[in-house]
Nucleic acid binder design. Structure first.
Lengths: 204, 204
DNA sequence: GAAACCACTTGCCAAATGGCAGGAAATCAG
DNA sequence: CTGATTTCCTGCCATTTGGCAAGTGGTTTC
């Protein structure tokens, strides 16, 4: 299913997303969604570049993005994948208004809806239920990262790969192996071998 | 310097902490701090046990705590250390009112100040500047975890150990090696060898 | 003060992962 | 279509880390 052009795309998914945590009712969700502007990001384009301040709170309707940082040796390290249905922004840069250490780049053509920091704050001020929703987004992201860190410590590379395969198969279909490798904390060589099959530790 | 008994301990550090992000002025900080109750946790005691809902937003005045989870094989994994001057609580459990997957345990005798979830929410409602402060605490925690994840991917065990040594030497003085090892994502055997010296990768 | 722990270290070897390089296959640019 | 680039796989071997077990030194317990 190809993404619709921006002109025809409707905020239905955004409205559903706003309601998804049971904090916002339909009427409120429709009003809040009306504040968002449509936005498209073509494959390989950047939503945010390192060194700039993240100022877009972007709900992703269709497509796939990744976040990546540059390590001390100058290598790309993928720090997150964002499948559709999520909010995409760099938390620290966005809220503290400081230059981002990360990049946000489209892995496929993307469309979605976004508001600026100023708009978001105005909405948080005017609508306590949206404020709660915003906190919920933050808390959920925090919990997801913690769980990934725990897996990094306790699970083997093979297990981490299988978890990703299970939880986000679309990532594996659109992201090149080298990005997935840095995300999982292994080299692309090792990931290729993991994929090949039986080499990993037995686990059944 | 032994911690003062609760009876005599004053909220000075808490007041300073509330002002530390430039979002709250002195008068407001004093009023907010007045809502907190003194609390002590003896060495080895738990501030939170896995399976219960975190309901204390605890500012740590003196002492050192750790968070730990139990992995699928039944092993303790230390997920965080909390030196004094920080807020200690389990974000996900606290804000979503769900059972915690983690424990919070005192590594030394601790004293500090705490409020409940209900009190915190009332303060967030009544005081926008404290709300901002609360968000700032969350965002900072998020950024710290991200940076730790990046180190887990890009840095060797030796480098991660040295980073911890540099950023939180007090942890190494009070936490047993096995806790530090799981926190760093290595076995206690390996950490012992890292400490021993020259075995690690050269880096100067 | 002997026995039972506990925290930590160390030797030996195995398992997991990395580095490099060559080559097949897909993708992209002109 | 053609050549260049990118992506991925795989063989060979080095490095890193883990697992186990023995041993030291310290502390607690009775």
């Amino acid at each position: 299913m190809p993404p619709p052009s921006i002109a025809q795309h409707s905020p239905d998914k955004l409205v559903l997303f706003l309601q998804s945590r049971g904090l916002i009712n339909t009427a409120q969700a429709v009003e809040i969604a009306a504040q968002f502007s449509p936005k498209a990001v073509a494959r390989h384009e950047f939503l945010l570049r390192e060194g700039r301040v993240s100022d877009e709170y972007f709900f992703l309707d269709y497509g796939l993005l990744r976040a990546f940082a540059t390590d001390p040796d100058g290598n790309d390290v993928t720090t997150a994948f964002y499948p559709s249905g999520q909010v995409v922004f760099e938390v620290s840069s966005f809220f503290t208004r400081t230059p981002s250490q990360e990049n946000l780049q489209a892995l496929t053509d993307c469309t979605g809806w976004c508001i600026t920091f100023a708009q978001l704050n105005a909405l948080f001020h005017a609508r306590p239920e949206f404020r709660e929703f915003g906190r919920s987004v933050l808390v959920q992201g925090f919990a997801a990262l913690k769980s990934r860190m725990l897996a990094m410590i306790t699970a083997s590379a093979t297990e981490r790969y299988e978890q990703l395969l299970k939880s986000s198969p679309e990532v594996l279909r659109h992201a090149p192996l080298k990005h997935i490798a840095t995300y999982l904390g292994v080299t692309d060589t090792s990931l290729s071998r993991i994929r090949a099959g039986g080499k990993g530790p037995a686990h059944d």
